[in-house]
């Protein structure tokens, strides 16, 4: 397993698109948060954190595309044949990809989210600063959700064997529930749709239902469930299918 991890690590970092994607994810996450913090007035610590994290609304799309590309590009250029010939244990292969991708996105988002939050605290004068442990939790929840979104995309791309299709599907899963929920008048359904959507773990000014309860670890659990389901489906089809 160590060898597979090492190989996937080398593979991931030896293409420039990984660098560009991560830089783009970090920039849009920080930039979106900074723009919203500058535009919108926050008067509570929670409101401030929400505004600071709004860049995630953009960053998650970049991260999803990165996750889908992690395996989808191999299908596109046929490299998957070489990869599976080198590592015929397909479950370990997908696991290694998930670990490398998840770890990378986690680290990048921790940087981006901490920077966004610090910037928002510096920028806002009338809202109380979040407690240090709340701030750390916010950053960790956001980073965990982003990493899980990348894994959701990885699993989806494994099932569909296409980066583009998987990216479209995952972006649909992320952005459609809040859009469709806005059309639902029944508040119970609105909350249900928002709570069980993969975006529920992301703390943003929108998308956490009418109650606007703060994103909790249980909503990170919802994203984790989506990611695990996608990876499970991906692993199943990777094992069952001919390459």
């Amino acid at each position: 397993m160590r060898a597979v991890l090492h190989a996937e690590w080398t593979k991931q970092w030896s293409v420039p698109s990984t660098w560009w994607s991560l830089i783009a994810a970090i920039i849009v996450t920080i930039g979106g948060g900074a723009a919203m913090s500058a535009l919108v007035h926050a008067d509570t610590a929670d409101g401030l954190a929400r505004l600071a994290m709004s860049g995630v609304l953009l960053g998650q799309a970049v991260v999803a595309a990165l996750g889908a590309a992690a395996i989808g590009d191999e299908y596109a250029n046929g490299l998957i044949v070489t990869t599976v010939a080198a590592v015929p244990q397909r479950g370990s292969l997908l696991a290694a990809k998930a670990v490398v991708l998840g770890g990378t996105v986690l680290a990048a988002t921790i940087i981006a989210a901490s920077a966004s939050l610090s910037w928002a605290v510096l920028l806002t004068i009338d809202a109380p600063d979040p407690q240090p442990d709340t701030a750390i939790q916010t950053v960790l929840k956001t980073a965990a959700s982003m990493a899980l979104i990348a894994l959701l995309a990885l699993g989806t791309a494994t099932v569909f064997r296409s980066t583009a299709t998987a990216t479209g599907l995952v972006l649909g899963l992320l952005y459609l529930p809040p859009l469709l929920a806005a059309l639902i008048a029944d508040p119970a359904w609105q909350v249900r749709v928002q709570r069980y959507a993969p975006m529920s773990g992301v703390l943003t000014p929108i998308g956490n239902g009418t109650g606007r309860e703060p994103a909790s670890w249980s909503s990170v659990g919802v994203v984790a469930t989506w990611a695990v389901a996608a990876l499970g489906a991906g692993c199943h089809s990777l094992k069952r299918r001919d390459v």
């Binding site: 060898a3 597979v4 190989a7 996937e8 690590w9 080198a86």
Partner: peptide
């Protein structure tokens, strides 16, 4: 070179 390196890593 990177192509061969990741393959080498995968075989330890």
């Amino acid at each position: 070179r990177s192509h061969l390196r990741w393959l080498a890593h995968s075989q330890g």
